[in-house]
């Protein structure tokens, strides 16, 4: 069993290694044409560069086919690729937790919630500020001159916005780690309460009224959509869509 597990791991690693090598090969070839060939692309040049990495491509295909057959015959299955988060566990526990009469326990939970709220507020502030900084760049029309080099403007936009995006997502990731950690503490408390007092069922089943509201919303949106389409047909929107679709937008597909 151990031997087969080791073999499985080796094959997986070989396949992933081959895949990454192939990806790098393609990137290197395109960069060689771009930098080494003075950005001149022709059918023959591209063909020649692809032929150079043909052995790598063929090897990759063979490895993929081989690993596919091997793993299918040996009924290989990946281990469960995720575990349930503490936040989800907490939500489940809150659903079945009875009312908490113990003041000390209740205060503990309240203090955890307070801390979570503070962290949430900090996160929202960071995201809002980062968004405003990004928005500030976007709303400054000087950065987007239609007569200038559009690719360069896009590059500058990415350079200016990326740090704010990194800060926002970094803060969000940090927040999710914190929440996970604090949820664990809350879970432990609620498990104790359930152990001592038993479970209840606080499941909220969608009432008839809410179902009706949902149905009405769906119908309204369908009607709005149909009206929009009809208006759009009459104001020439359909024709514009057709015109755009029957002509190849070269820059849209990277021909530039």
């Amino acid at each position: 069993m151990n031997k087969s597990n080791k073999l499985n791991k080796v094959i997986l690693l070989v396949t992933s290694f081959q895949t990454i090598i192939l990806g790098i090969a393609f990137i290197v070839q395109i960069l060689r044409i771009y930098f080494g060939n003075s950005k001149v692309f022709t059918r023959d040049i591209c063909g020649q560069y692809i032929l150079e990495i043909l052995p790598v491509i063929i090897l990759w295909i063979l490895v993929i086919i081989g690993s596919f057959i091997y793993f299918n015959i040996n009924d290989f299955k990946y281990k469960n690729i995720s575990k349930v988060s503490n936040v989800t566990k907490l939500a489940n526990l809150e659903r079945i937790c009875p009312m908490i009469n113990d003041e000390m326990v209740s205060n503990k939970l309240k203090s955890i919630k307070k801390k979570n709220l503070i962290v949430e507020i900090v996160l929202i502030i960071i995201i809002v500020l980062s968004s405003l900084m990004g928005l500030g760049y976007l709303l400054n029309i000087k950065h987007f001159d239609p007569t200038g080099d559009l690719f360069d403007q896009a590059k500058q936009m990415a350079i200016h916005l990326m740090p704010w995006a990194i800060i926002s997502f970094g803060a969000f990731i940090g927040y999710s780690f914190y929440i996970e950690y604090s949820a664990k503490a809350s879970c432990d408390i609620l498990r104790e309460v359930i152990k001592n007092n038993g479970k209840v069922n606080k499941e909220e089943i969608l009432s008839k009224k809410k179902k009706m509201i949902k149905l009405i919303c769906q119908l309204c949106i369908v009607v709005i959509a149909v009206v929009f389409i009809v208006v759009g047909v009459f104001n020439g929107g359909a024709e514009d869509t057709l015109q755009k679709a029957v002509n190849i937008c070269t820059e849209c597909i990277g021909l530039g």
Binding site: I30, L31, I33, K39, F151, T250, E251, G254, L255
Partner: peptide, 14 residues
């Protein structure tokens, strides 16, 4: 179409 290829195609292919 190959005449059109340049920086943008290189970026998108990457």
């Amino acid at each position: 179409f190959f005449e059109m290829l340049g920086t943008l195609f290189t970026w998108k292919f990457f």
